[in-house]
Amino acid sequence: MKLALNVNGKAASIVVDDPEMPLLYALRNDLGLHGPLFGCGLGQCGSCTVLVDGKAVRSCSVPVSSAVGRKVVTLEGLGTPAKPHPLQQAFIDEQAVQCGYCINGMIMQAAALLQTNSKPSEQQIRAALAENLCRCGTHLRIVRAVKRASEAMT
């Protein structure tokens, strides 16, 4: 089965056996995008988060077919090491990464937040990231990074 996707602003066509396959595997294995990561596979940790039509979605828990006709943006689509998105730059500036496994989710969830609320308070940032799990312990730096990005973006 052939599916036409729009990922990071580009049309991408993939062939899948099963339209119910979670979007995550299409992104990682068919399109080679390693920004979204498999964490729990249950939609509970957030490390697989991508934007679908601007909304943060747990790509491990939504079928790839549901992304057809929508705009998917992954961490790679936000910016590059040479030209990072303000959020990515803020995470570098705050050194808000330890192992980095959760960081995809933190940044993507924050990107969705900043789209609807360009000046979030610390409480609002904490609430938005409450369902993204990190076990290294960079939480405070992550919150600071999101704050810094929101300031840089205005």
């Binding site: 390693h34 990561l37 498999f38 961490l75 790679e76 990072p84 995470f91 990464v97 960081i103």
Partner: peptide, 19 residues
Amino acid sequence: IARLDIPDKVTGRFTYMHD
């Protein structure tokens, strides 16, 4: 010193074992 791996990690270019 700024961590060398962070730019790759925040832009989805870092190669984890799973990648």
